[in-house]
Nucleic acid binder design. Structure first.
Length: 461
RNA sequence: GGCGCGUUAGUCUAGUGGUCUAGGACGCUUGGUUCUCAACCAAGAGAUCAGGGGUUCGAAUCCCCUACGCGCUACCA
């Protein structure tokens, strides 16, 4: 049975990297008719953020990534890690260490000063700690002094480390809580995780995990390290240089389908090169042989484009529903203006800005009304004529508005652009909107005429 | 510093020894459509496949070295 998991730490706002990792774990599990687990790794009590766990759950739900088991919480499995930690000491794979943080710090500083690699000096390994007082000792992994530890990574091949380069890492902290290294192995093993798919930042600590599996005489999972998402400067993606919080993407109005789609394109590609596809298609075609281990730069521009593609491809009904969360106007009003802006929407949150003039008076400035080649008086006269013409329209439809206005450029001697842009501006306060006649139709006859009168009054001042 | 991973256009990528005079996408430029914007269509600029050595009849593709980038180097994950 193939089993994968996503194991985020509840230390803040759910991260884009978590979504990325969850997506690939989920896809791989589903592709192989396996199961996908959610596990909350809350062993760092100092960085714990209370609401974070719920936010992780909400984010995954928003993305549409469903877990088959969990959520499990490591904080509720403490006895297990403690028991397993002790077991390692008994079998000689680990040892107690009562070195103080101060000593550790001193040792490291000295090593650094001498140009050595900062690492635990194995004092307690060679001179066993005695009189272990509760809360004052840790359990450390006894890494072999010689030989090497290697493993097979699904997208990188064989990776090996010399044992002498691996630190005797802490497995159980002095507060009896496990570190990641112990907890991850105990849990993955206990939960039957067959494939550990996680970010590249874990690559260097994998040999420790392999050693622990060996010490437990448990079967090793298959490892696959995903590339690290990058900032534009190629450093690991971070808050300061790139939006990373999933709630930001949600608030901006990125569709979960589009975000997932974009994330799929990070280090992976469809066999046929197709770039717009849904989660189901990703699952169907997913294969680790197509994962490129080089770290991709996260490009908001391309995400935006993809989001636009998804918005344009959405059924009207669904788009309206999605929009409900991003605007104050009601469903009926949304439906009315949506046809005019749907192909102009890149993110849902710009909907109100694109449609504000339909529902409230646009800000129009006198100086902006008159075209460069015309005088205020000429403009006023033309607007009066336009107003009269429009007021005579019986059925206020774009077709009739067009019929009424199409001959106007010729009659007034204004160019089409000048005339229509002037009208557009006084009606919407903007020079870039959907087609004028459509826009006027939706604004309505009464309001359209009012705005013309208002512009004339402005010019009279 | 040590260890590990990586390196095809600004960015995401295709490519697994000959079909590559390196293909696609985003972005950019130009043109078409047009009352503006967007969408759409078309065209274009942009990569000596990091550099250097090999292997081979032949290398973006295999090997080695160098450079550069990134990650890890905590009683954090």
């Amino acid at each position: 049975m193939i089993k994968t998991r996503i194991a985020p730490s509840p230390t803040g706002d759910p991260h884009i990297g978590t979504a990325y990792s969850a997506l690939f774990n989920y896809a791989f599990a589903k592709k192989n008719k396996g199961r996908f687990i959610l596990r909350i790794e809350d062993t760092d009590r100092t960085r714990l953020v209370q609401e974070s766990e719920q936010k992780i759950i909400d984010s995954l739900n928003w993305l549409g990534i469903k877990w088959d088991e969990g959520p499990f919480k490591q904080s509720q499995r403490l006895h297990l890690y403690q028991k397993e930690g002790e077991k390692l000491v008994k079998t000689g794979a680990a040892y107690y260490c009562d070195c103080s943080p101060e000593r550790l710090d001193k040792v490291r500083k000295q090593q650094r000063a001498e140009g050595d690699v900062p690492r635990y000096d194995k004092k307690c390994r060679h001179n066993p700690a005695k009189n272990l007082k509760k809360g004052s000792f840790v359990i450390r992994l006894k890494v072999p002094e010689e030989g090497e530890t290697s493993f097979e990574d699904l997208s990188r091949g064989k990776i090996s480390f010399k044992n002498k380069d691996i630190d005797d890492a802490v497995l159980l902290k002095s507060d009896s809580w496990p570190t990641y290294h112990l907890a991850v192995v105990v849990d993955d093993s206990d939960m039957g995780v067959s494939h550990v798919i996680r970010a590249e930042e874990w690559l260097s600590s994998t040999p420790k995990h392999v050693l622990i599996y060996n010490a437990f005489q448990k079967k090793l999972p298959v490892y696959a390290h995903l590339p690290l998402l990058r900032n534009p400067d190629r450093s690991k993606i971070s808050k300061r240089k790139n939006p990373v919080s999933l709630s930001w993407y949600k608030n901006q109005g990125y569709l979960p389908e589009a975000l997932l789609n974009y994330l799929s394109l990070m280090g992976w590609s469809m066999p046929d090169g197709r770039e717009k596809f849904n989660l189901r298609e990703f699952i169907d075609d997913f294969d680790f042989s197509r994962v490129d281990p080089a770290g991709p730069v996260f490009d908001l521009k391309k995400l935006e484009w993809l989001n636009g593609e998804w918005i344009r491809g959405l059924e009207n009904r669904k788009l309206v529903d999605a929009l409900l969360e991003y605007t104050k106007i009601d469903e009926k009003q949304i439906s009315k203006v949506l046809p005019l802006v749907r192909e102009r929407l890149k993110i849902l949150s710009e909907f109100d800005n694109l449609t504000s003039y339909f529902f409230s008076e646009p800000a129009v400035e006198k100086a902006e009304i008159v075209p460069r080649t015309k005088t205020p008086t000429e403009t006023k006269d033309v607007l009066k004529e336009i107003g009269e013409t429009l007021s005579e329209i019986g059925r206020w439809s774009k077709g009739d508005i067009e019929k009424a206005l199409l001959s106007k450029p010729q009659e007034t001697g204004w160019s089409k652009t000048e005339l229509f842009q002037t009208i557009r501006y006084i009606e919407t306060g903007s020079r870039a909107t959907p087609p004028l006649f459509d826009t006027l139709e939706v604004i309505g006859k009464e309001k359209s005429l009012e705005r013309i009168q208002k512009a004339i009054r402005l010019l009279n001042q």
